[in-house]
Design a protein around this nucleic acid. Sequence first.
DNA 1: TTGTAAGCGTTATCAG
DNA 2: CTGATAACGCTTACAA
Lengths: 350, 350
Amino acid sequence: MISDDPTPPNVTLEEIARAAGVSPSTVSRILNGTVRVSSEKRQAVEQAIAQFRYRPNVLARSLASGRTDTIGVLTQTVASPFYAEWLRGIEEALYEPGLTPVFVSSRWNVEEERTRVEQFIARRVDGIIILHGQLDESRLEEFSRQTPIVVLGRSLEAGPTLAGFPIDNVQGAFDATHHLIAQGHRKIAFIAGPPNHTDALERLVGYRMALEEAGIPFDAIRVEQGDFVETGGVAAMERLIDRGVGFTAVFCANDQTAYGARLVLYRRGLRVPEDVSLVGFDDVPTSLYTTPPLTTVRQPIYELGRQAAEAIVGLIRKEPVTSSPAPLSLIVRETTCAPRSAESRAASSG
Amino acid sequence: MISDDPTPPNVTLEEIARAAGVSPSTVSRILNGTVRVSSEKRQAVEQAIAQFRYRPNVLARSLASGRTDTIGVLTQTVASPFYAEWLRGIEEALYEPGLTPVFVSSRWNVEEERTRVEQFIARRVDGIIILHGQLDESRLEEFSRQTPIVVLGRSLEAGPTLAGFPIDNVQGAFDATHHLIAQGHRKIAFIAGPPNHTDALERLVGYRMALEEAGIPFDAIRVEQGDFVETGGVAAMERLIDRGVGFTAVFCANDQTAYGARLVLYRRGLRVPEDVSLVGFDDVPTSLYTTPPLTTVRQPIYELGRQAAEAIVGLIRKEPVTSSPAPLSLIVRETTCAPRSAESRAASSG
DNA sequence: TTGTAAGCGTTATCAG
DNA sequence: CTGATAACGCTTACAA
């Protein structure tokens, strides 16, 4: 909707053919290495290509061949350390098979999400990778009939062109909470994620399960609402403290939330982990460098990205897809320790 | 009941035309709103479109129209908090004009960078935005003859289809260093960026200029090599301390470097800012949440992204492009303060 | 091996 | 307003 002039002077395959004194098909063959061509003609063609700086028109090629060698990648936002790492995994894994990822974000909007997928299909991408997403399963199933789809972070009824890679948030959250309990904490607060976000909900479940298993009664007063970003962590932690709720540890629904919480702790003069233990979720790259380094549940994000990429390639090739994503793991760093009241028994050297 | 909704693989415009009893051109017209059509036929067509779930093939459309409504965006990596924010700016600004960004990264590889740009051209993107990039100017000039190009972070001789948006790294680094000096620091260390990176070099220049202006002799012993990521900051800071170089403040070539340096300080029991003041560069989103929040030079990344996007749109429309990027600004937060006293050398010896 | 020719799905140019 | 009919640039049987 912008340009108003005709296509810029672009050299075409036909012109190359003419210049090299061969037929268009021969040029095409050389370009794609389809069949052998006499080195004589090949020379001529290659020279013409170089001379005219010829670049094949990908659009025309795709239109004719029915392939675009392109994978549509849909995320909620591109502006997050979490997604960035994930995209990198996809990108690297797609590089070798010669596929190009096209990243697009739906900015947390379901409507836009649907539009984006439709755009992908309209662009005839060879496959689509969706991270989470809020599209309902039937819709996904429908779309997948037009283009293979892999959804990361969701459990889907597998089909020949649809695969879901669930992520075990419950287990991860359980482990994190359990770790705190094992260190002697009983009053463990939880800063949740967006109430409509599946991951967030599952993490809450894991938290509750660990509590229950340890015979610690769940108390809603220790649960605050966050939003998966720093500001939400700040607000939640402030409410938690101001309300006078007692706690010796805080489990945050993700790392960014933990960053926000950690800042409030700092402002209030509460030390981490001596006064309050802190655990995050995701293991975003920066979490290794917070002060002190954050104990968190590691999602092998980069790996998951790679796997999603490999899965979509498999789907495209109609190969069987093994959907067993890498497991989450608790990474104990330095934001957790035994609560002070238990110090006498712990006798750690810190 | 068997579904009467088989969703044929690929419905085409022609089939819609047939189903609606009109000619392909009429369908096309309705799709593009080119000219008025009788509401009678329009009805029929729209119904057919809905019924068959028809989605126009973008490839064919582009091939025929010579327009892709797409902007190629080339970054070094997609896995950086810095780039993410920048991409978001581009994405938002391109949304309104109806353009779709295609993000691709060259992974710090010059060769790949060239390949990517060529791919963009082969895909007939309407324009290209490059962040920094290592392509030499003549090459860029050449490429820009095929497709308009905007380069952010570089100063380029402007042409009708090429524009560079330089960023004043020197000034930013000068301000940061000056801030430290103004607070009484005299022994200011500098952790540099990659030696072949223009931004890194310019920041070093700014550092030296501020020193010089204040009559403080430059001492290479206080300059350590980093690499713009956390690990480099860690290594550099360790060398700085282990070597017994005295300093009361450290200026880091970027925020990620500062994160690494800050961790070493923490490990060594040096407080920030009481024992050592710390300044970064970029103002990555997380820097607001480090402990304590990082004093840094703010690059209005999001804004720059928007501007780059607007510039490329301008170039495409052949409108004059005003290339005056938003200036950098020092954001004083909590990692800097006056040095304790002349005696207190942070790393005075081991 | 190499050339010919028929598409691929739309848009665009002209007549009606 | 509407419908033929060329492009658009390349791939790919099908022949030669």
